[in-house]
């Protein structure tokens, strides 16, 4: 069978990857991850309404099973405030006010940590246990998994802050990276990012979207578990 002609492959002439590609990947990836996050917690929303509507043996939420309202409000407010602060910080980063972004980033991190601590305190002051009916199960499962995701997102926020602090003296837009530095491809002819600061901006935009989604889920959690 005749084969197609193809040009000889020369490892020395691999052309550059568009510097914007990593940024686009991060932005699209964050949106896809956010859609996935919604479905993680959709399962708990479904469980809540399913068990509530069934109310087997009147055991969905027996008397005395009620969450600590004050701690629930603290968690929701801290998460929402953290998301707002982070979004605000992302605007600062884009506007080259990187000192302000770091300040707001640390604030967002602190608020989220307060939310996690408040959730742990809420668990320890519950007037009910895991065996106390459908509501108790959903409450513990939902808030438990949510807290795990919040801690995971906090790790991401910490890496963004650490990168920003490490390169705090690096000016915007200066290309000092080696060819193929971001992609790890030694055959590249040109840099595939502009510099670390630039990637920090893209990563922060991606994180902001994810974090906002997490905060929205947190507020929904609060409305369903504490107010409904």
């Amino acid at each position: 069978m005749t084969e197609f002609a193809h040009p000889a492959t020369d490892y020395g002439v691999v052309e550059e990857e568009p510097p914007a590609l990593l940024e686009r990947n991060l932005l699209i990836g964050s949106r896809l991850w956010a859609s996935s996050l919604v479905f993680f917690f959709f399962a708990f929303l479904f469980a809540y309404f399913y068990l509530r509507s069934l109310n087997q043996h009147g055991l969905f939420q027996p008397k005395g099973v009620s969450p600590p309202q004050a701690w629930g409000a603290v968690v929701a407010v801290c998460l929402a405030a953290s998301a707002v602060l982070l979004s605000w910080g992302a605007v600062d980063q884009r506007s080259e006010r990187r000192g302000l972004w770091r300040l707001k980033g640390v604030g967002a991190l602190a608020l989220a940590l307060v939310a996690v601590v408040a959730q742990v305190v809420a668990w320890s002051t519950l007037g009910f246990g895991p065996t106390d009916g459908g509501y108790a199960s959903v409450y513990l499962g939902w808030t438990g998994l949510y807290t795990i995701f919040v801690v995971g997102s906090l790790y991401w926020l910490e890496t963004c802050l650490a990168l920003s602090f490490r390169y705090r003296d690096e000016p915007f837009g200066r290309a000092e990276v080696e060819p193929g530095d971001a992609s790890g491809d030694d055959y590249r002819e040109a840099p595939d990012i502009r510099n670390a600061v630039h990637l920090n901006t893209a990563e922060l935009a991606a994180l902001t979207f994810t974090w906002t989604t997490m905060a929205v889920i947190g507020v929904v959690t609060w409305v369903v578990l504490y107010l409904a």
């Binding site: 068990l51 055991l59 459908g134 513990l140």
Partner: peptide, 17 residues
């Protein structure tokens, strides 16, 4: 959680289904 913490998501006798 049902198997470890004894929650009742899927336990009919504990308010689950």
């Amino acid at each position: 959680l049902d198997r470890t913490a004894q929650t009742g998501f899927f336990n009919d006798q504990a308010g689950g289904s």
